[in-house]
Amino acid sequence: MSVSRICVVTGGSKGIGAAVAADLSAAGHRVVLAARDREALDRTAKVLPGPVLTVPVDLTAPDAADELFGRVEGAWGPAEVLVAAAGAGASAKLTGTSDELWEQQLALNLTAPFRCVRRAVPSMQAAGWGRIVVVASVAAKTGAPYVAAYTAAKHGVLGLVRSAAAELAGSGVTVNAVCPGYVDTPMTDATVAAIAARTGRGEEQARAALARMQPIGRLIRPEEVAAVVRLLLENEALNGQGITVDGGGVQS
């Protein structure tokens, strides 16, 4: 993307979203950071080298996508890139997964990206150019114990990506997903703490166990995921893909 674009990054205050935002900003793009935590947004915005707009928003609210994209359009114009990186996991046995937990996971990991994609697409189609990348997970491609709700949501969002890509093919708008394994982010820190609490193991042991789940023997770095996002933004021939970034664990 040699031209400077208006890039919306949800979940942009930390983790993968912050790494994507930093990468895009360094490449000369205008970056919109959207997340719930205003203070975290401000901290991330301060270290970006280029123009940045912060939008504190709860993406699980029904009108959040309209609020977010309306703010962007009012300040800079229509969004040209959407990176939907907001998400969170939760762990529970299948029989211990409450309706509330189930709905929470679908709301954040599936419904919120859907609403953002739906809101972003019309102006991208009108312009004849757009890029959408959803940060999914290896859980979009394979199942694991104790994460039924999270896995169902991530499988669903990969289905959304594939269907949207097929529908928009030839319009100049591409839709893809990245599917990371365990990444060295605050979300993984929370997973480590949950494992330690459930099993009685120390957090160092729990973190080492997660690192071993990647064949390369370590956690994935957020910057490595951001580099794949950038590839998907630059290459129109990549469409409808779910690119796994996990050191070779899920080969697809």
Results as ranks from 00 to 15, higher is better:
238 L>V: 13
197 A>Q: 14
132 I>G: 03
151 T>N: 12
179 C>Y: 00
221 R>D: 14
176 N>H: 05
190 A>V: 12
178 V>C: 00
167 E>T: 13
132 I>L: 08
236 E>I: 01
239 N>L: 08
211 A>S: 14
161 V>W: 00
183 V>S: 07
160 L>Q: 09
218 R>M: 09
145 P>M: 10
173 V>A: 06
216 I>L: 15
126 A>I: 05
197 A>L: 05
173 V>P: 09
132 I>K: 01
138 V>F: 02
157 V>A: 06
202 G>S: 15
154 K>R: 12
229 V>G: 01
131 R>W: 03
189 D>A: 14
240 G>M: 06
175 V>A: 03
234 E>K: 08
162 R>C: 07
151 T>R: 01
229 V>M: 02
214 Q>T: 14
202 G>V: 04
178 V>Y: 00
138 V>I: 15
215 P>T: 10
236 E>Y: 00
135 V>I: 15
157 V>N: 04
132 I>D: 04
219 L>Y: 08
144 A>Y: 14
222 P>M: 12
165 A>W: 04
200 G>W: 04
210 L>R: 07
168 L>Y: 04
192 V>S: 02
185 T>W: 07
156 G>R: 10
184 D>Y: 09
162 R>K: 15
193 A>N: 05
168 L>H: 03
229 V>R: 02
194 A>T: 15
167 E>V: 11
141 K>I: 09
227 A>K: 13
139 A>P: 01
162 R>A: 11
161 V>Q: 02
